[in-house]
Simulated scan of single mutants.
Amino acid sequence: MLDLTPAFFAFAIPAVIFSGMSKGGFGGGAAFAASAILALYLPPPVALGLMLPLLMLMDVTALPGYWRRWSWGDAAPMLMGALPGVLLGAVLMKHADPDLFRLLIGVICIAFVAWRLAQGAGLIRLARIDRPHRGFAGASGMAVGFTSFISHAGGPPAAVYLLSRGLDKMTYQATTVLLFWAVNLMKVGFYAGAGVFSLSTLTADLILAPVAMLGVVIGIKAHKVVSEKLFFGITYTLLTFTGIRLIWVALA
């Protein structure tokens, strides 16, 4: 049961706006931050269930603009790999307690920041693959399915494969939009079966839907005036403190 109190909306509104900004103007890789921030206030499965319809709304809004501009040769094996990853996440959600989810989300937050900083510093360089590689794509897709299921954070494992393909910016973005639209659809039935949706979470989603769209619009406009360095600097700071806090709570 989710109490729709002023304290909840004080957490949820900034988190959802931030997620929309990431989706709308900064590649979407940090959109999972909203789930991590909400997991500080809510049980993690409730936070994940709350965010999924909002992320799907953002996906549906973005998909028409990238229609058929994706690389199906790369997307198809990733989607095939994503299904067992989603199934693994569903098994974990059924048997794990909330503290394990807090720990995993916290670790993913810290790992995401470390990976991006190492990539920016040139410590991680991905070898280019000239043609789609089914094995690599499938393994990446499985990681996408699992991390997306437990934290909505499938961006990094998707990027590991797609960046190695050297796709142009439009094809890369279109492929990620297609991938996460499909993966989020896979997750709906399992989330419903796990009982993470409720009348109160769906009511909150209806209230927050305009907030999510506002975040996307702000992101589109902010992309033109706010440097990626500033945006991701704020993102990394938020995720670092959020990750440390989630790990601390889980272990304590």
Rank of each mutant, 00 (worst) to 15 (best):
176 T>R: 00
194 A>V: 00
172 Y>N: 06
169 K>G: 10
28 G>K: 09
240 T>F: 15
61 T>V: 15
116 R>D: 07
181 W>I: 00
172 Y>V: 02
68 R>M: 14
190 F>Q: 13
232 F>C: 05
243 G>V: 04
195 G>N: 11
198 S>D: 09
128 R>W: 00
56 M>R: 00
23 K>S: 09
51 M>C: 14
18 F>R: 01
193 G>C: 02
8 F>M: 10
90 A>T: 01
57 L>H: 05
192 A>G: 10
30 A>K: 04
214 L>F: 14
155 G>V: 02
208 L>F: 14
246 L>I: 09
195 G>H: 09
213 M>A: 05
47 A>N: 02
118 A>K: 11
50 L>V: 06
191 Y>D: 02
40 L>I: 08
83 L>G: 00
210 P>W: 12
179 L>R: 07
229 K>G: 01
245 R>Y: 11
162 L>T: 03
196 V>N: 04
73 G>N: 12
46 V>W: 04
183 V>A: 01
100 L>K: 04
202 L>F: 14
160 V>H: 01
26 F>K: 07
211 V>C: 15
59 D>N: 12
11 F>I: 07
146 F>Q: 01
176 T>C: 13
49 G>R: 00
108 I>G: 04
67 W>Q: 11
229 K>Y: 07
129 I>D: 02
137 A>W: 05
151 S>K: 05
227 S>F: 15
12 A>P: 10
51 M>P: 08
143 A>L: 11
53 P>V: 04
250 A>V: 10
47 A>G: 03
83 L>M: 14
241 F>P: 04
185 L>N: 11
167 L>Q: 15
179 L>C: 07
243 G>I: 06
88 L>N: 13
227 S>V: 12
223 H>W: 05
241 F>E: 00
250 A>W: 06
136 F>H: 09
192 A>E: 13
198 S>A: 15
128 R>A: 03
64 P>R: 12
7 A>M: 10
178 L>T: 00
166 G>H: 06
71 S>H: 03
183 V>T: 04
34 A>N: 06
80 M>R: 08
46 V>M: 13
113 V>H: 06
165 R>A: 01
209 A>T: 13
1 M>I: 04
15 A>E: 01
79 L>P: 03
74 D>G: 09
196 V>K: 07
134 R>W: 15
